[in-house]
Amino acid sequence: MWDYTDKVMEHFHNPRNQGKITEKQEGEEIVTGQVGSIACGDALKLHLKIDEETQTIKDATFQTFGCASAIASSSALTELLKGRKVDEAMKLTNKEIAESLGGLPEEKMHCSVMGQEALEAAIYTYKGIPLDDHEEDEGNLICRCFGISDTKIKRIIRENSLTTAEQVTNYVKAGGGCSSCLPDIDDLIEEITTEQETATVEQEKSVEAATEVWTNRDSSSVETSTTTQTTKTLTNLQKITLIQQVIDTEIRPILAEDGGDMELFDVVGDVVKVILKGACSGCASSTETLKLAIEATLQDRVLSTLTVESV
């Protein structure tokens, strides 16, 4: 059970300023900022009534779907906002929200972050500034101390080619608290290293395949060799037939070695749409490397301007 402060529980049981704002007077504007989603398990709509002349927040209310600390954070946020100037409100941090509640458990700090983001969204809307997409931190929670998921840790490992859990701690804090998640971070590093090694092998294989075809060209397969040489004058039908042929005779057998498979879905202009199946279809990053490998083979064999899209 979470170790909530009395203040959190008090706000949870008696939330301030819940609901929408419906009434406004001349010279006032109502704006709404919304963050989160029902899929993530928490979502917040923050409504602000702003006096245009003084640029002051006259009223703030909320509607929240979420746990006790999400509701308490929203409630505390509306209290902090009332009477603030818009520009001052912009400076409000999630830490202030948490502090006003006497602190939040580390794993629940995201509730205060959600409050801060909703505020930002509301003020941006008010000022007409377009909103960036916030990174969705979905996935399995790995570091409970800092609330960091495997999705985020993997991304950081990939982007920065990290090789030790200690590096991960330096980049995103994960592992820097109680350290009980370090073995899991080690596992993620291993997973990505293996993934990258396989990807390199895949690429080498596809290059090999392409070269093999190249060397075979004059000798054996007559149909294909003629068409490859006349790439520029390919009719659409010829192009599709050739792509299908290369896929069936050269790409699928290689994929099959690793338990994978693919299907030609459509060809639109120079875009070859394929369906990846089997062993590799679930994993986003191996899909990406596979796609590149297939693209390389098709460019080499059929037409250099082809691109591959997985659908």
């Binding site: 949870f12 928490d42 746990c67 006790a68 999400a70 509701i71």
Partner: peptide, 9 residues
């Protein structure tokens, strides 16, 4: 439309 922890608490 509501979240479990809030119900439990």
């Amino acid at each position: 439309f509501i979240e479990g922890e809030a119900i439990l608490l």
